[in-house]
Design a protein around this nucleic acid. Structure first.
Length: 276
DNA sequence: AAGCTCCCCAACCGCGACGAC
DNA sequence: TGTCGTCGCGGTTGGGGAGCT
């Protein structure tokens, strides 16, 4: 469609990754880490740009990824976080262990968005669609568009209101899709009359620099099935959590990664968000 | 069975942020 | 302080599978 290639180098491969490329990339990263994505393809023997390698790793090959559809509880968290953060997918993903921003973004656009519209909720403002059309002047945040999602935190905060959270949750409560427990568990405290998100525990949690501990109350429904302990034990044992799409990883010992201490080191570091 | 349409999601692109110099 | 290189984010695209006619 006339787009400029992201890499000006000729001979850079694009398109779907082959199993062999995946193997090379994961072999290299598990062995050396990724100190500089620009250098990774060259050192790993790949005809890809660094950007493509980073994307492939973070969105697909990372061992701590969950696969499969988002659960109802995860979906509810995404909705809650989106109501507060807007389209800041990386921030949302950071609070969902094992999920990537790309995955959440895709799920939002293909499933949640439609679901909310079907329920009569504006997926941008999280307010009932009829309310938005009937009194636009009273809801300043209702005019926020997708273009504004890359704006400052201030703009994002303007987009939300406790009222909008209630609107979403009220309708979701009538829906058969989310379970009652998930709806109740993932409480943001937004049903109060307070207009300050500083008092909202979820917002406080969102603003924290530290990665999630798994103890967050709104994560009760779906954390625990992940991942540090699981991967530590997995690394020491023969089983791996990947699905069929990455079955070849079951043979990772074959390309010289049988050293469990190495894999352990990777897992521990990655769980802390550190780079090897 | 063949053709068509719709939908999903992996991958790409552009751009802003950030650090090094 | 300005420039350059790199990284990461969010928006978008398009290939391919699923479903329908």
């Amino acid at each position: 469609m006339g787009r400029q290639p992201c890499c000006d180098k000729l001979g850079v491969k694009r398109g779907p990754w082959t199993a062999e490329e995946d193997r090379k990339l994961i072999n290299f990263i598990l062995t050396n880490g990724h100190c500089c994505w620009r250098a990774v393809p060259k050192l790993a023997g790949l005809l890809r740009c660094g950007k493509s390698c980073r994307l492939r790793w973070t969105n697909y090959l990372r061992p701590d990824l969950k696969r499969g559809l988002l659960t109802d509880a995860e979906e509810q968290v995404v909705i809650d976080l989106h109501a507060k953060l807007g389209n800041r997918w990386s921030k949302i993903a950071a609070k969902l262990p094992g999920r990537t921003d790309n995955e959440i973004k895709n799920h939002w656009n293909t499933h949640i968005k439609k679901k909310l519209i079907k329920m009569g909720i504006d997926p941008v403002t999280h307010e009932p669609l009829d309310r938005k059309t009937s009194s636009p002047a009273t809801t300043s945040h209702s005019v926020v568009t997708a273009d504004s999602t890359s704006n400052s935190d201030e703009a994002t905060k303007q987009q939300q209101s406790p009222q909008s959270d209630v609107a979403v949750r009220d309708v979701l409560a009538d829906s058969s899709s989310p379970t009652e427990s998930s709806t109740n568990t993932i409480s943001t405290g937004g049903s109060s009359s307070s207009s300050s998100h500083d008092q909202d525990p979820l917002v406080k949690w969102l603003l924290e620099e530290d990665p999630p501990t798994g103890d967050e109350p709104w994560l009760n429904d779906f954390t625990g099935s992940v991942d540090v302990d699981e991967f530590s034990s997995i690394a020491a044992g023969p089983e791996l959590p990947w699905d069929g799409a990455t079955d070849w990883l079951l043979d990772y010992q074959d390309f010289g990664l049988g050293d469990s201490s190495l894999v352990d080191g990777y897992i521990i570091n990655s769980s802390n968000g550190a780079k090897f």
